[in-house]
């Protein structure tokens, strides 16, 4: 039985796709057979961030509509053999996704994989609600910024009421806070909400803090999940997140501004 993780946020552009690619790669590199699914039908981007955009033949909607089987649509990652990508379609409309169709796909994948990572689109419409419907765990990606925090709280409401677990009166979805684009320097001068602030407001379990990092853009430019950039702060922070999720005790890093002048000039 696979464990299904939804990477969600409500607000767009906060780092869901970056996170999905990173943690899927991280789980796979730890030896867990993992598939990452792009639910952003119409705006697919996961394939680009994963660097497999030229290998897309069939997509999620093809499988739902019976035009391809799941094996034909899965793309095996070239860097890690435990990792597969199920891309979203670029052209079709969101209505092509159905609860039954997604349920059937997840059921099939569940036999072959240990983790199913669902990259949710922004908003609270069909793609987003379907991505979270079948989830066991939710990574709520939040930026330390008012509208992102508010939208994360809205997602908590939906996770608690509109999921399969909620409908069946099962144990609720486990919610984890992932604070992304954190800048300790700006927190220090009072320009940015701190980890403690966000945790206090949302009262969620903190899975990790990912620092603002220029490496994120350059690695997505290259189609390399940031977790593979082991020299970058963000890559290391994602590695910590995966380890923590798997139950290891890892202290939080990158929360305090203790870089020296040189680090500040050359780090990132």
């Amino acid at each position: 039985m696979a464990r299904t993780i939804v990477v969600t946020s409500g607000k767009g552009g906060v780092g869901k796709t970056t996170t999905s690619a990173a943690i899927a790669m991280g789980l796979a590199r730890k030896g867990h057979r993992t598939v990452v699914i792009d639910f952003d039908v119409g705006l697919r981007n996961l394939d680009l961030v994963m660097g497999c955009e030229r290998r897309v033949v069939y997509d999620l909607v093809n499988v739902i509509q019976g035009e391809a089987n799941i094996r034909q649509a899965l793309i095996r990652d070239k860097r890690c053999e435990e990792l597969y990508v199920l891309p979203a379609s670029q052209t079709r409309d969101k209505e092509a996704l159905s609860k039954e169709g997604i349920g059937a796909i997840l059921e099939q994948l569940s036999g072959d994989f240990e983790y199913i990572v669902c990259d949710s689109p922004a908003g609270i419409e069909k793609g987003a609600t379907l991505a979270m419907y079948y989830a066991d765990d939710a990574f709520v990606v939040t930026n330390p910024e008012v509208s992102s925090v508010r939208d994360s709280d809205r997602m908590l409401g939906i996770l608690a009421s509109k999921s399969r677990r909620a409908e069946n009166n099962e144990e609720p979805i486990k919610e984890y806070l992932l604070l992304n684009r954190y800048s300790p320097k700006r927190v220090k001068v009072g320009e940015m909400l701190s980890v403690e602030d966000v945790q206090e407001i949302l009262s969620m379990h903190l899975l990790g803090v990912i620092p603002e990092s220029r490496s994120v853009l350059s690695s997505s430019n290259a189609g390399v999940p940031i977790i593979l950039d082991e020299d970058s702060n963000a890559g290391q922070a994602y590695a910590d997140v995966v380890a923590r999720y798997l139950g290891e005790e890892v202290p939080h890093r990158f929360i305090n501004d203790k870089k020296g002048l040189l680090g500040r000039l050359f780090g990132g």
């Binding site: 910024e145 008012v146 927190v187 001068v189 009072g190 320009e191 940015m192 909400l193 701190s194 602030d197 206090e200 407001i201």
Partner: peptide, 8 residues
């Protein structure tokens, strides 16, 4: 310095 506190 106060803007984060106001946001909170």
């Amino acid at each position: 310095r106060n803007s984060a506190a106001v946001a909170k």
